[in-house]
Computed example of a mutant assay.
Amino acid sequence: MESAIPEHLQTARTRHRRVGDDYAPPYPSFVARHKPSVTRVVMAYFGLQSRGAPPAAAEQALARLASDFATADGPSHWDRASYVDEAGFTNVVTVAYWDDRQIFDRWFPAARERWTGEQRTNNGFGTFIEALYPSVEGYETLLSSLGRPEGVAVLADGMSGEVLEHAYWGGMRDRIPLSQTSEMAPSGAPRAIRDGARIRIVPHDNLCLIRSGQDWGDTEAAERKMYLGDVEPVLREGMDFLRDQGRSIGCYANRYMAVVGRDGTTTEKSYGMSWWKSLSALERWAESHPTHVRIFGAAMKYLSTLGPAAKLRLYHEVTVARADEQLFEYVDCHPQTGMLNAVQTVEAA
């Protein structure tokens, strides 16, 4: 059993884990391991929003983005998902990952201008960029199985063995290296500033992002029926609560999306991603809110019934980012989109 925090990021604790060294998790889980030379990663979400199916110009913009990704300084990994949001708009969200901020900084300006800047072609759709640049001390991953990593874990050099810090309330925090010495509490409040056609969100310190995914592609008939019939509806109910009422508990915005292939076809994968005021707010929902208690109960019943035979793959990544590690900008998007939902008014630049 190893710690989720790699050796080179371990330090003398001033804040203690929620469990002791003799804790034994009831089932195995794993974390992604980067090379020690990796000090910062980039998670950049490029969103496209339209009323109804994306128009031809939007499809062209998506194709151009994929072409930009294929250039020398493009991301090491990217994937795409879609969903219909609370206002009835179709959103196509492409998330790209880098493990070198300097490479990203070379690539980003031209792509940004085409997506939300002066070179953007406004043909009946909105666009947005939501990006984080956390240090490796500021985020954690967790995967239920080895092989076929998702999200930022695809960039890793390898995977851990079985880790100690999981399957208890507080494990998410305990896996983040900064938690050894920092409370990671938020400070300040987000503001919106109009910058030409763009609306920029000026964020606050220690904003929290979670991406949490499911892959049922390997499941066979009985397990698939159990997941899609007993677990997924409860998960969707919780995701809808966060989307529609999340602000009351510190969730600024939530998207529950279907992953689509490079050719646009729907896959047997989904993920939820949400922006939170703080890690603490996310923890409180996870530990005690009825919607997550039901998700947790359905998942535990499913996993305890199937045991090691379960073929459902689960993963998540949780990031706590400083204000200077965040970028949010929106063009022609409705006011409930992403971090626009976190503010009441838009100031002039």
Results as ranks from 00 to 15, higher is better:
His8Ser: 09
Gln10Asn: 11
Thr11Phe: 04
Arg15Cys: 03
Arg17Phe: 05
Arg17Lys: 11
Arg18Met: 10
Val19Gly: 04
Pro25His: 14
Pro28Arg: 00
Ser29Phe: 15
Lys35Met: 10
Val42Ser: 03
Tyr45Trp: 11
Ala57Val: 06
Ala58Phe: 07
Gln60Ala: 04
Gln60His: 05
Ala61Leu: 04
Ala61Arg: 04
Leu62His: 12
Ala63Tyr: 13
Ala63Lys: 14
Arg64Glu: 03
Leu65Trp: 10
Phe69Arg: 01
Ala70Gly: 12
His77Ala: 06
Arg80Cys: 07
Ser82His: 12
Ala87Ile: 03
Phe89Pro: 05
Phe89Arg: 13
Phe89Met: 13
Asn91Trp: 02
Val93Lys: 06
Trp98Met: 14
Asp100Cys: 08
Ile103Gln: 15
Phe104Arg: 05
Trp115Glu: 01
Thr121Phe: 14
Asn122Val: 06
Gly126Leu: 06
Ser135Phe: 09
Ser145Asn: 04
Gly147Phe: 03
Gly147Ile: 02
Ala156Lys: 11
Asp157Leu: 13
Gly158Asn: 08
Ser160Asn: 03
Ala167Arg: 13
Trp169Leu: 06
Gly170Tyr: 14
Gly170Pro: 12
Met172Leu: 10
Arg173Leu: 12
Asp174Pro: 12
Gln180Val: 08
Ala185Ile: 09
Ser187Lys: 15
Gly188Ser: 03
Gly188Phe: 03
Arg191Tyr: 13
Arg194Asn: 06
Arg194Pro: 14
Asp195Met: 15
Ala197Asn: 07
Ala197Ser: 09
Ala197Val: 08
Ile201Trp: 15
Leu209Ser: 12
Ile210His: 10
Ile210Arg: 07
Gly213His: 07
Gln214Tyr: 12
Asp215Phe: 02
Glu223Asp: 00
Lys225Tyr: 00
Lys225Arg: 05
Lys225His: 00
Leu228Thr: 01
Leu228Ile: 03
Asp230Ser: 00
Pro233Ala: 07
Pro233Val: 10
Leu235Ser: 01
Glu237Cys: 07
Asp240Lys: 14
Leu242Arg: 01
Gln245Tyr: 06
Gln245Gly: 04
Ile249Lys: 07
Ile249Tyr: 06
Gly250Ile: 01
Ala253Phe: 06
Val259Ala: 07
Gly261Ile: 01
Ser270Val: 15
Leu279Val: 06
Leu279Pro: 13
Leu282Ile: 02
Glu283Gly: 14
Arg284Tyr: 12
Arg284Ser: 14
Ala286Val: 11
His292Asp: 03
Val293Asp: 09
Val293Ile: 09
Arg294Thr: 02
Arg294Lys: 13
Ile295Gly: 12
Phe296Met: 04
Tyr302Pro: 05
Leu303Gln: 11
Ser304Glu: 15
Leu306Ile: 00
His316Val: 01
Asp324Val: 11
Leu327Asp: 15
Phe328Cys: 03
Cys333Arg: 05
His334Met: 14
Gly338Gln: 06
Val343Met: 04
Val346Glu: 05
Ala348Phe: 08
Ala349Glu: 15
